[in-house]
Amino acid sequence: MSTASPANDHAHDHDHDHDHGPPRGLTRWIFTTNHKDIGTLYLLFSLLMFFVGGTMALFIRAELFQPGLQVVNPQLFNELTTMHALVMIFGAVMPAFVGLANWLIPMMIGGPDMALPRMNNWSFWIMPFAFTLLLSTLFMPGGGPAGGWTLYPPLVLQTGQAFPFVILAIHMMGASSIMERSTSSPRSSICALPA
């Protein structure tokens, strides 16, 4: 295993669960098609987003601790509430499920991997970019989205310059979700089973 390189072929397989010994360093995580690695990435990402969203919740609760304005202004309060929900739903809860699905589905159905492993990798690596974009809207002129996570029009149309970035970020999360769904739905998973 110590000589493992990205060029490893099947003949050097030491682990009966997957085809390759893992490459070393960052590339192992960036290019991985190993469902357990991707599952781990998802779970770590979910934990990070849980802390990000949780920090926002702490600000919200600190403000509500007593009547009157203490910590944040009303606009920022609404931004934090909206962003907290988006981060918790799309950044913490859903990736946590996906991480567990990645770890467990192939083992539960006796498959070697998820269906479409490269798409599985893509579906994860869209997420950090989507959330960097989403969280960066908090620092844009006019602030982040403040109309609630459902993004109801017409209120959401009053978002400042961040509006197109919010929409793009949500679309990226949607694309990631669809890719993930394609790799882990029962039908696709069965495709991954050995014939």
Binding site: P74, Q75, N78, A146, L155
Partner: peptide, 9 residues
Amino acid sequence: ELCGKDHGY
């Protein structure tokens, strides 16, 4: 229904 920054006012 959340209606902007002064929703509480």
